[in-house]
Amino acid sequence: MAKTPHYAMVIDLNTCVGACMAACAMENQTPVWENKWRTYVHDMEIGGDNDELIRRRFFPRLCNHCDNPPCMSVCPTGATHKLDNGIVMVDDELCMGCRACAMACPYDARYDVTYDDVDQGKEFYGELHHRSRPSVDKCSFCAHRVMRGLKPACVETCVGSSRLFGDLNDPKDEVSKLVKSGVAKPLMAHLGTRPNVYYISDIERTT
């Protein structure tokens, strides 16, 4: 029997131009009018000290789908839960919106979906709108797509092939190889969250 997949994402910061926010918003119907997104692409300026090259860096971020998710342990209702394949999900039927998860998340990945956002979403996204309840929402690695064998919307739309999505339990998977090689590193691993989103930075890049 095939091993249960353990999904992870690798983001190559060298090729990101920040195009995925819109694809994610449309797929997951986030309240963009309130500047609430499941994934953000920061537009940063890095380097520059001691005559180093100054670069513009697009820095995409999203829920890290931690193996030890602090947002899940603090969740009193069980709304935040982890699937066998590693994806951390939010059940908006259970979520009461206490925001303990937002406080616990080191990656600032949680955001409020309010009653107003639900109402306005109906207008904004029309008849296809699927949100019915408020919750403290976050990225789901597009679990609904992944389960149909598709890639997350942000990966699908990524023009620079900056975002890769794969299975860490498959040694032949590109993502798995990049993670194993050490080129792709997680954010703030010292917190013990065991994140599943890895980044390749300019300096680390070998190819």
Binding site: P76, G78, C95, V136
Partner: peptide, 19 residues
């Protein structure tokens, strides 16, 4: 709270078993 009705899930003493 964002969803006031969902508070029922923590008022239920079974929450200590579930979470």
């Amino acid at each position: 709270l964002l969803d006031h009705l969902a508070i029922i899930h923590v008022l239920n003493p079974m929450v200590l078993v579930n979470k």
